[in-house]
Write a protein that binds this DNA or RNA. Structure first.
Length: 233
DNA sequence: GCGACAG
DNA sequence: ATCTTGTCGC
């Protein structure tokens, strides 16, 4: 297994953005993963999965709600991304283990979290220019950064998930924010999951690629990959 | 005790 | 997260 040393340059070639969209009334949801070329930001691969929320949203338990559909979607990818950009928090969590942390451990991939709203910790507003940031702290420790990705816009909250430093996470987020407040990878995943959920009313299991000898069910396919040691190892 | 609280 | 039009500003 290839593992980077703490001070080794981190040059991801592919970056995955992840997101889940929910249907208003029911617990029906759609997860999407969009993989971009880290240099050109062009789409390299994308995958989706339908799901049903197992329980109502509870602050602090987001990972347990979104991990299943996100893992199902990840299992549909044809590539293993170099880093996962999650919609939410990593270490900046009441128990220091948010969605990005979970996804990192389960996939054994570098991960980071980008949140649109504050959760836990205190901070001062960062400067108005793109790239300005302030520390998100709690109990004398640094949990993440409040980062301005565009001049004058509301900052985002960046935190480490797994196998990445806060410096690299910050750099990567800025590199992914070329035109909007949020990283391009997350915006793409958001759009895809929305489109998927809107454009389907009945059968929640109409996904899959026919003709391939692999399992059509996302969960089974992911399990098969793990058995073969080909995914996230 | 009360309020706040990622998506 | 989602319900939702127009509107102000760069």
């Amino acid at each position: 297994m290839v593992r980077l040393a703490a001070d080794e340059p981190f040059e991801p070639r592919t970056v995955a953005g992840l997101d889940v969209t929910y249907e208003p009334g029911s617990g029906r949801c759609a997860a999407a993963v969009v993989v971009l070329d880290a240099g050109t930001l062009e789409v390299v691969d994308e995958s989706t999965a339908f799901g049903t929320a197992a329980f109502a949203y509870v602050p602090g338990l987001l990972a347990f709600r979104e991990l299943p559909p996100l893992m199902a979607a990840l299992g549909e990818l044809t590539v293993v991304p170099d880093v996962l950009v999650c919609d939410g928090y990593g270490i900046a969590h009441p128990r220091r283990f948010g969605l990005a942390s979970h996804l990192g451990v389960v996939t054994d991939r570098p991960t980071l979290g980008v949140a649109k709203n504050p959760f836990t910790g205190v901070y001062e507003p960062p400067g108005d220019d793109r790239g300005c940031w302030s520390e998100l702290r709690e109990d004398g420790e640094t949990l993440g950064r409040v980062l301005r990705t565009r001049r004058g816009v509301k900052p985002v909250f960046v935190s480490v998930g797994h196998r990445i430093t806060l410096d690299r996470a910050t750099d990567l987020v800025l590199a992914l924010c070329t035109r909007y407040r949020l990283p391009e990878a997350i915006r793409r995943a958001d759009r895809l999951s929305r489109r998927l959920l809107r454009g389907s009313s009945g059968s929640p299991a109409a996904e899959g690629e026919p003709g391939t000898g692999r399992p059509v069910d996302p969960v089974e396919r992911q399990q098969a990959r793990l058995r073969d040691g080909r995914a996230y190892r």
